[in-house]
């Protein structure tokens, strides 16, 4: 591994995240823990989205749905009096995977903009489904009594949650890295640039893409379970289409198809939102044009800016197809 600017950034950001709690305790700012937990949870979801979007070219406008499923899994178990722990994770992952398998199987019949719209359609259906769940508070959502407990670990504790999220984020990055550089990843990336060729080569691309879709959904569902632990609250608003849009923005802002891009994107978007919101109540008036400028001028996102110019066209999956 050469020590170029991008590697340095990855190391600095991860080390910074690892040390953040120490700083927060030193200056007595426990809030930082929670803020950065939220950033990392959304970054985790964005890493999941990136797996199919950045490498597979599948633009899902409905991945917020899996965050909601993960969060509702925790909420529903607590509502029915099941103590949190392994059941939380099993249900979040299981429900996320099952739903993704069914919906993915239908959605992947389409491609391009049709795929964007059909994933949106399913997310909207999920939205209305959760709204109609009166026992879980309907549109108001519900409070979750108590977090996930795994042995001695209690995720409703701020520091525990922070480090659990941090480790899961690193884990998800590692899994993505392994996946993308495996035979599996080659097929996914190949299918993105030329599906017919991959099919002709004898790869059942549909099955590969479905698998990628399910994995990415599961990562989002785990992020949802973490989000439920952070907020101890779940509501249908988690499935709103603008939330799915935000996930896409994180990925694109960070740099499409780069492994670490989504993390940078999540950090950038949430900080941007926060900082502008403190200057003016009309924060969207500024966030909108910033997004436009990024799209027009920083084509490969923040991570692309860190890449030496002559290398840019060669970055893995970084080209736009």
């Amino acid at each position: 591994m050469r020590l170029d600017l991008r590697t340095i950034t990855v190391i600095v950001v991860l080390a910074g995240l690892a040390l953040m709690p120490l700083l927060a305790w030193a200056v007595d700012e426990p809030y930082w823990l929670r803020f950065w937990s939220r950033v990392m949870i959304l970054a985790l979801a964005a890493v999941g989205v990136n797996l199919i979007l950045g490498f597979g070219g599948m633009v899902s406008f409905g991945h917020a749905m899996y965050i909601a499923i993960g969060a509702y899994a925790v909420g529903a178990l607590r509502f029915h009096g099941v103590e949190g722990g392994l059941p939380d994770l099993l249900l979040a992952v299981g429900a996320g995977a099952l739903v993704a398998l069914i919906i993915g199987a239908i959605c992947l019949r389409t491609a391009g903009i049709y795929f964007i719209m059909i994933t949106l359609a399913f997310a909207q259906m999920t939205y209305f489904f959760f709204i109609s769940q009166e026992q879980y508070g309907g549109d108001d959502g519900m409070r979750i009594e108590g977090g996930t407990r795994l042995g001695p670990l209690d995720l409703s504790n701020d520091a525990t949650l922070y480090y659990a999220t941090f480790l899961l984020l690193c884990g998800a990055l590692l899994v993505s890295w392994r996946l993308v550089n495996s035979r599996f990843g080659m097929v996914i990336r190949g299918a993105r640039s030329n599906e017919q060729r991959m099919t002709a080569l004898g790869f059942p691309t549909y099955r590969y893409r479905l698998t990628a879709y399910v994995i990415s959904a599961v990562i989002c569902a785990i992020a949802g379970a973490l989000l439920a632990n952070l907020t101890l609250y779940v509501s249908p608003a988690y499935t709103h289409w603008t939330r799915s849009g935000e996930l896409l923005i994180m990925v694109i802002l960070g740099g499409l198809g780069s492994l670490f891009g989504p993390v940078l994107g999540a950090i950038a978007l949430l900080l941007l939102e926060d900082v502008i919101a403190h200057f003016t109540r009309h924060w969207q008036l500024f966030l909108g044009p910033i997004l436009i400028l990024v799209v027009i001028f920083a084509r490969e996102g923040l991570f692309g800016l860190l890449t030496p110019r002559r290398q840019r066209s060669h970055t893995a999956g970084g080209s736009h197809g």
Binding site: Q284, G288, I292
Partner: peptide, 22 residues
């Protein structure tokens, strides 16, 4: 944006929505 892929267009026009609403 015509030569870009749909994703860039989605993001850019999403930015326009935020801008116009505000």
């Amino acid at each position: 944006l015509y030569q870009r892929d749909h994703l860039d267009q989605v993001l850019c026009t999403f930015g326009l929505i935020l801008f116009f609403n505000e």
